[in-house]
């Protein structure tokens, strides 16, 4: 019963939990998006430099 009370929030459950849910989604997106971007940036820069290096060594040989 105690758990039920907790989720019903004295009748305001829908309001309380929807706002906490939206908050969780927005904050999580704010964590995931920059991490994905950091990884992509590192990967792209590595690719760009390794391509530049290949071109350089091709010309020398």
């Amino acid at each position: 019963m105690a758990l039920n009370d907790f989720f019903s929030m004295g009748g305001y459950g829908a309001y309380v939990w929807s706002s906490y849910g939206i908050c969780a989604v927005v904050l999580l997106l704010n964590v995931i998006q920059p991490i994905i971007r950091e990884r992509r940036t590192i990967r792209e820069l590595q690719k760009r430099f390794s391509l530049a290096k290949e071109n350089k060594s091709d010309k020398h040989s």
Binding site: M9, G10, Y12, Y15, V16, S19, Y20, C23
Partner: peptide
């Protein structure tokens, strides 16, 4: 406000 005031814990910091 009953339990609805608990929204404050995310509303005020944001």
């Amino acid at each position: 406000q009953g339990d609805s005031f608990r929204i404050m814990y995310i509303h005020v910091p944001s």
